[in-house]
Simulated assay, not measured.
Amino acid sequence: MNFEIITELAHLECVCQEARQVPAVMLDTEFIRTRTLYPRLGLIQMYDGDTISLLDPIELENLLPFWALLADESVIKVLHASSEDLEIFHHHAGGMPTPMIDTQIMAAFLGHRLSTGFAALVNEYLNVVLDKGEARTDWCARPLSAKQLEYAAADVYYLLPLYNLFTESIEQAGWREAVQQECELMASKRGKISDPEKVYLDIKNAWQLKPKQLAVLRKLSSWRLKEAQHRDLALNFVVQELNLWKMARFDIRSLEKMMDGGFNHFELERHGKHLISLAIEVDNMPDSRYPKPIERLINFPYYKQTVKNIKVQTNAVAKSLGIVPEFISSKRQVHQMLKWAWIHEQNPDKIPDLLSGWRKNYFEEISLPLLKK
């Protein structure tokens, strides 16, 4: 493999302009993520079928030509297992690659599990064994070794023949439109921005709390998210999730009780007094501003039987289509549909995945009767 390392803006403009002349460009990213909220971008790999370009985001002044390529709707952007790549693009460019195709999704429509890795598919379809020994490289360190660069280049070099093979099979199977819909669905989910006022709903065991306690948790978790975004620090490195829950559950309002509750030294020293002040704000809040208790699907008496019935239907559909059941209907998607039916009263603005897009034809008729209370 021959590749170019792009460290200057003029060179970047040139390779991006060339890439905009082809129908599809192969993309991948390398990054590290330890204590930060957002991934730290270390390398971007691009292959237009002629040139492999390794873009160095640490050396480059800016990446505007590349962001423009991502937005060029005349060029398909091809990735594999793209969820974290999409998160990176959305954070740095403010948008998603459009249009985008994920070969992991293509493979799922061809009968593979959604978790099937790139190396396994390259081995099966191209009879090439990829060396994955550099997977845990610090991609933000410089200089990168020749072996690291070759590893990165291989991820886009072999992506092109894999994409071409999958495209032919997908066309023959009649899944082209469904693949596009699934890729757009993934991009829309990865592009969603967390609502600070709703992140408390994702805190483990939040359902155990009463309305006032939930109001405290909402206040604290909203502050934590904003602090994490401001400092680009992983949420639990601001304050551990469990400690927010403890403050809400046990009405902790002093540094002494925080210490007794297991808060670490850094949490107490940097944020202890502020967390207490936020909790006291909620103490002075009228009851009318408390959140409603969290409804759990498992508490509905017909939950287990309904899930079982949906699973039976999913397995039947999957068998008929030659697709693994968990790709057609994941546990999260089943729960999304049950919440829509039982908690959100079938709100038309919250149509679940199983009743929209390509899945609608297979699930609407059989699922709606199962959702009646």
Rank of each mutant, 00 (worst) to 15 (best):
E4Q: 11
T7V: 15
T7I: 14
Q17R: 01
V22G: 04
V22M: 03
A24I: 05
V25W: 00
M26V: 08
R35D: 14
G49S: 11
T51G: 04
I58A: 05
N62V: 09
L64H: 14
W67F: 01
A68S: 15
L70N: 06
A71Q: 15
E73Y: 02
V75T: 12
E84N: 09
H90L: 07
M96T: 11
P99H: 07
I105A: 03
M106F: 14
A107V: 08
L114M: 02
L114S: 06
A120C: 08
L121V: 06
Y125L: 04
V128N: 04
G133M: 06
G133R: 03
T137K: 03
T137C: 03
C140G: 10
V156F: 06
L165M: 12
Q181H: 07
M186E: 12
G191K: 07
K192M: 13
D195Y: 11
E197H: 13
K198N: 13
Y200L: 10
L201F: 05
D202F: 14
K204D: 11
W207V: 00
Q208H: 01
Q208L: 01
K210I: 14
L214A: 08
F250V: 04
L268I: 14
A279S: 07
S288M: 11
K292G: 11
V317F: 15
S320G: 10
V324L: 14
S329D: 12
K331T: 09
Q333A: 10
H335V: 09
N347M: 02
N347A: 10
P348S: 01
P352I: 02
P352R: 00
D353K: 07
K360A: 12
N361K: 13
N361H: 13
Y362W: 06
F363W: 04
F363G: 06
F363M: 06
P369Q: 14
L370K: 05
K373M: 11
